[in-house]
Design a protein around this nucleic acid. Sequence first.
RNA 1: CGGGGAGUAGCGCAGCCUGGUUAGCGCGCCGCGUUCGGGACGCGGAGGUCGGAGGUUCAAAUCCUCUCUCCCCGACCA
Length: 567
Amino acid sequence: MRLSTLFGKTLRQSPAEADSVSHQLLLKAGMIHQVAAGVYAYLPLGWRVLRKIEQIIREEMDAAGGQEVMLPVLQPFEMWQETGRDLAFGKSLFTLTDRRDRDLCLGPTHEEIVTALARLNVRSYRDLPMMPYQIQTKFRDEPRPRGGLLRVREFHMKDLYSLDVSQEALDRSYQKMVRAYNNIYARCGLPVVMVEADSGAIGGKDSHEFILLAETGEDEVIYCAQCGYAANADRAAFARPEVENKGEPLPLEEVSTPGVKTIEELARFLGVLTGQTLKAVFYAADGEVVFVVIRGDLEVNEVKLKNALKCIEVRLATEGEVTGAGLVAGSASPIGLSGIRIVADDSIAMGANFVIGANKPDAHLKNANYPRDFKVDIMTDIALAQAGYRCVGCGAELLSERGIEVGHLFKLGTVFSEKMGAFYLDQDGTEKPIVMGCYGIGLGRLLAAAVEQNHDEKGIIWPLSIAPHQVYLCPLSIDRDEVAEAAGKLYSELRKARFEVLFDDREESPGVKFNDADLLGIPIRVVVSPRTLKQGAAEVKLRAQRQIELVPLGDVAEKLKAILASR
RNA sequence: CGGGGAGUAGCGCAGCCUGGUUAGCGCGCCGCGUUCGGGACGCGGAGGUCGGAGGUUCAAAUCCUCUCUCCCCGACCA
């Protein structure tokens, strides 16, 4: 490729809207262009990177037994009603109507379509396992696109769906994907960690995410350096800190607490630790006001809460909803409460004689004990893990880091096959639901993550495997005949040897060329100039390193071959 | 949706508070010349419905109202 004819220019200044490093560099390098919020065009260099990533993924999926298919983006809305996911996705689903007034949507993912296909194409246990996959554009009307390619509304995604006869068979498919994913990230030069995850709107049970640790990431990973436990903060477990108030339950006792609203105020007012209180928090779960109790030193994890309630949306209840439900904010308590669902964190039973609200203003109760003084409807783990708490497994202190989610595996189980009637006939002659899994990777996000991970103050440093080109051929003083000739000759020679070469044939000053070379991040730079030609040579330099090596013109191809072979 | 910020030339910005000639600056772009190993220089140019609509005024980038878009922080997710 001749740089002079490339569609897409580098910029001297990054556009102001760019915040994340990857966004800035990709825009500045002219690799992508923003068309609308969360909607991007890929220019030639960016597109080449995306296709390289795509090819790596394709090879690994094929190697793992996947079969590539092409599925429609345009999908009947009815299919989504069939599985109830029209509600689960809610407004994130792009919907439209055709000329006959049929409701359609743009696929945010393709479980429905795949299950429908499985329903037709899988009859017997002999037809399983099966692993169709697709690499396509998907659409989600995200509440907030952000970070350039990190979170968009129209995106390229690989999804593989595994179809199996049993949970055990699914486990095997799942492990195949774990290995394939590790291969993919390794080949893309990205160090990732696999963590336990929540399955969100996709549904299902077991779930793992692959996270690239990065400051700019949206996700928080809680992990234990000692035993290796790692989970998304959304679902991370942790050992509740011990509290002092144990021992025999004492009688309830009302105390006056004028003006006390928060747990901190309460603890200070009564001279107790926050862990000796119980906190009430009010949520709206799909519109229903729910009473949540948790020990005062802990915070509620809304994802866990949502799962516990099996609802689609939870948010903090508004003031109006709270008073409308007859609750006394600041002094609310489950004691003596009725007509409202109560969800409690396990921690309320860890300890005794808690301070709790009295359900009337400016008063609290001492010595509240569960279950002596109140009942709850759901009692489970709904507490938010944070760095500093102890690991459930080994007791070591948990740590936390931010990261970018670059892949997600789900064990769907039979959720979809049962709802959509995708059954197979087993060996024993009985009909059973197909056991499914799904495995996604966002390609654009992976591309952006690669830049977040591999850059310096000058620009991108592409890993060789996904670089748009392998070699940046950079003649200086190209208006001199001997340079133009030598560079031109080298260019055709390298191309003949099947190197991917970006030929900077522009008449620009050395500074401009070097800076663009660094910005674009092509792994190997080859410089031809009057100075090097005096010695019948070219300079070879790796983008990631400082050293420059002078190589005789005739040996450049060999040298490059050696470099490529060495990595 | 809640909270914060921004829309003026391809990119980065000033001008707005305090209305008043052809709306500025840097970079980039075009032409000519000189340069040529880390974003060169001179001379000459091109390029703007000041996000949109309405209003106030003799007069609006500037004041008022409405509206659209984009960015950042939260809920969602690859």
